[in-house]
Amino acid sequence: MKAVYGLYADPSVAQAAVNNLRSAGVADADITVISSEPFEHLEFGHRDAKTAMPWIAATAALFGLLATYYLLGASQMSWPLRTSGMPIVPLWTNLIIIFEMTMLSAIIATVITLLITAGLPSRGGKLYDPEVSDGYILVGVEDPSDGARLESALALAGGRVKKI
């Protein structure tokens, strides 16, 4: 993998670097920003913010609800037990288990969606610099078509520019 990137100590300077890359004609999707904390107060922190995760969780919850309702009813009909004069399929008590399985389905779907959409687990081989852990913000482009022009765009904002 080839890449050109800059390391910035100041978040607003990192934002300027992102803007410079855009001005240099780099598409938003090709700009990589890596940091050791989320930056919700800056524009670059909101890139890729749109996600269907809440809808996926809600759909999974609905699936969990229906599946548990069916499985409970099917089990109770297959092994009928008479207890305390209650019906074979008692909705009152089944609601408790249906509720738990509904929430569990939502939780598991959320985690799976997170892992898939965030690209985890990842084996490496992607743009990264351990200095990010010390508070630097990495702004760069993987496999750049015009490395020299991007280098100057990154340098224009200030910060250390590196090439790999």
């Binding site: 890729d48 995760m53 990264y128």
Partner: peptide, 19 residues
């Protein structure tokens, strides 16, 4: 898990934690 800290990863993590 190979976490890098891209903006996408941060956004997904925070959304997941809220849900």
């Amino acid at each position: 898990l190979g976490w890098r800290g891209t903006t996408k990863q941060w956004n997904r993590l925070e959304t997941a934690m809220q849900i």
